[in-house]
Nucleic acid binder design. Structure first.
Lengths: 233, 233
DNA sequence: TGACATCGTGTAAATTTCACACTATGGTTT
DNA sequence: AAACCATAGTGTGAAATTTACACGATGTCA
């Protein structure tokens, strides 16, 4: 028994007995640049929301793990790879994408401000860093995702060592403190911060000094076990 | 121009130009029953994993909000409705369902041990409460979901008023303390607990007393604003 | 009316958090 | 080489929070 299909459906080779939503991942990548908390956006080269900025992300390959998808899209659209990534929340309002029903599993990621070698690639015309307090209008519900990601990041500073994911291999205590101050958006007491951060027992002196400017050089520190994010407290 | 389709594909009316995963929600519903932390499971009446126990849940209707889907499935499979629900995590390992690629957006929920009127319904042969430390073998990756949900719940006791979601309208301080002890799986000091819980300013005396057994009656308390889960600390 | 079982209450020690200011050091300028 | 500059590095006491701990109160029941 045979049935007919219109030519409009020719490209549609993947069929199911009931409707399936599309699944995407979107990634909010944070870094600290120019003493500001910045977020990586891509310029949309195709509809919908053509010409607007959006989080990097894209459709899940069938057979691909969710986190792998996030990493792949990030690599494809921005050239960034090998960074700290954590699942944030799943957004699925029925009308969040005008094309079809799309469920977006969102991630947030942190990267040190060195090794940022952005490349513009296939499905994004451009990628750039934007200060969190100066974002352009965003496609889809991406502003909502960013707001949530920022809240989560700030909260997580208080009970984990996630902030180290912003740091290069070596850093001074003042640099580290500045990162906390930027993300939390408030000044911290230098002595109390140092007592606290050293008590975590996560960093150690390298023995080197960093010279910069006409003042006393700072001791250089490094992580005891890089790439591990510990829950503290 | 017309093309042909085999009869095997007849039922498959929903077609896409690239493959889409299915999306489900699964819900871990906790309650306190018989002085134990219990979880609601449904007995699977159909393959895969027929005859095993699983979390209530099911496929997302196209056009349906994710949380609405969780609530609907919970209602359909267990008759439970109107309870506290929060998104937990999204699971999407490529092989987590043998039928097809399935992304599961998971939720966890809390309910008081009164108003539990379980009903067996359409796609679940049975539903029952299991003590968390005595679970049967579970379908899919549901054991993993439960472990995560329990961790999240215990953590959240410490910085929110989520535990009140386990309480009936009125309760005594001893009953409330017992709930904390069961979820955290450790004894708490009575005087310190009372100081702490009252300092939260979330409950108030009703003026009533609860009599039960040959001992001094306990004062009865109630929530000041029911159904609100506050972040404390 | 005495035994029973849980209710309800306070204080002191220990720990953690917070507030706060000056000396050290190397580079730069004169 | 002396003075100046700018940031690095350091300790202590007060306040707040957390922890440990024991007994009299009260209603029921025998």
């Amino acid at each position: 028994m045979k049935f007919t299909l219109s030519s409009k459906q020719l490209a549609a080779q993947y069929c199911y007995p009931y409707p399936h939503p599309a699944v995407t991942t979107d990634i909010a990548v944070f870094t600290i640049l120019d003493q500001q908390l910045k977020l990586l956006l891509v310029h949309r080269g195709a509809p919908p929301f053509q010409g607007m900025w959006a989080l990097p992300g894209g459709f899940l390959d069938i057979g691909e793990d969710l986190e792998a998808c996030a990493k792949r899209e990030l690599e494809e659209e921005t050239g960034i790879s090998g960074i700290y990534l954590e699942q944030l929340y799943t957004f699925g309002a029925p009308d969040r994408d005008p094309r079809e029903r799309v469920i977006s599993v969102t991630y947030y990621a942190l990267t040190p401000s060195d090794r940022l070698q952005l490349k513009a690639a296939s499905d994004a015309m451009d990628a750039a860093w934007f200060a969190l307090d100066n974002m352009p209008p965003l496609a889809f519900d991406h502003q909502e995702i960013i707001t949530l990601a920022h809240r989560r990041l700030a909260a997580k500073l208080g009970y984990s060592t996630i902030a180290f994911q912003f740091m290069p291999e070596t850093f001074t205590l003042s640099e580290l403190q500045t990162v906390y101050e930027i993300v939390l958006n408030k000044k911290l007491d230098k002595r109390n911060f140092r007592k606290w951060i050293l008590a975590l027992d996560q960093i150690e002196e390298t023995g080197e000094l960093r010279r910069s400017g006409n003042h006393r050089p700072a001791r250089i520190y490094q992580l005891k076990n890089p790439a591990r994010v510990e829950i503290i407290k």
